[in-house]
């Protein structure tokens, strides 16, 4: 799969001149961006700005029409969620990620179920599945009475996000993409999820945090990337611009109005 040899100094994810069309709709226009480990990136933009499309390419759901994607210096040639998971890229979305009809333990290991052989037949290793998910339930602050055998449909929105984040940690992922992770959550749950995001970054993971709430993400992120109409319009370190200034950028259709402010070249 790899053509370019592994490069230690290469960014963890690098995207070059990415273009993607959905019929007549030009979803991504020549997007180039790179992300490093141990960073929390705020990916900001209005609906339809292309931020979700970009991360769908990174998580293997969409294949770009042109452009290149490198992971740890290796050129990515095939796009499938299975491969993204193999690379250690986990995407956490509000509506996707947990099957309501399955127990927490079953969801936790969905797609990478551990097995234990009985007479050579690979049965699911329920003990391992239950133990690992119970640990996450306890560490990530779910209600006391929730057990690993409970159906996911009994969990609150915040608890679901916690499980997904816990799963990302458990499987030693290198990249966690969080797509609007705090939508529909209570204030307390929102803070909890944001804390978890920072913990992941502190553990050396790359966290891409997608939102349209610039104020919220500005507090967490190390770097802010703003997209508009399928283009990357701004890419700055957190201290370079205040949240208000960035909000102004978004409000004006992604164009930097105040030319006195220096914008980091991409």
């Amino acid at each position: 799969m790899s053509v370019t040899p592994m490069n230690k100094n290469a960014p963890l994810i690098e995207v070059r001149n990415l273009d993607l069309h959905f019929g007549a709709f030009h979803a991504l226009k020549n997007v180039s961006v790179s992300f490093d480990s141990g960073q929390l990136i705020g990916l900001v933009g209005d609906n339809g700005a292309g931020k979700t499309t970009l991360i769908k390419v990174l998580s293997g759901i969409h294949k770009p029409n042109s452009g290149e994607v490198y992971f740890a210096g290796k050129r990515v040639k095939e796009f499938h969620p299975k491969l993204a998971i193999k690379f250690g890229i986990e995407t956490i979305q509000q509506s996707v990620g947990l099957c309501d009809n399955l127990s927490i333990a079953r969801n936790f290991y969905l797609g990478r179920e551990p097995v234990k052989r009985w007479f050579g037949i690979p049965f699911l290793d329920f003990k391992k599945m239950r133990d690992a998910s119970t640990k996450v339930i306890r560490t990530f602050g779910l209600r006391e009475n929730v057990s690993a055998d409970d159906q996911v449909e009994m969990l609150s929105g915040g608890e679901r996000q916690s499980i997904k984040i816990g799963r990302a940690v458990e499987f030693k992922n290198r990249v966690v993409i969080m797509d609007e992770p705090t939508n529909h959550l209570s204030v307390r749950e929102r803070e909890h999820v944001n804390e978890l995001a920072q913990q992941l970054r502190d553990q050396g993971l790359l966290v891409i945090y997608i939102t349209h709430d610039i104020h919220q993400v500005h507090k967490l992120a190390d770097r802010i990337v703003i997209m508009e109409n399928g283009e990357k319009v701004t890419d700055v370190a957190k201290d370079e611009m205040t949240a208000d200034e960035l909000e102004e950028v978004i409000r004006c259709g992604g164009r930097v109005v105040d030319t006195s402010k220096e914008v980091e070249p991409s």
Binding site: S59, I61, H80, P81, K82, A84, I85, K86, T91, Q93, S95, V96, G97, L98, C99, D100, N101, L102, L110, G111, R112
Partner: peptide, 10 residues
């Protein structure tokens, strides 16, 4: 139960 989730988990 949830095809999109299944897909997202590879």
């Amino acid at each position: 139960g949830d095809e999109n989730t299944a897909l997202s988990q590879g």
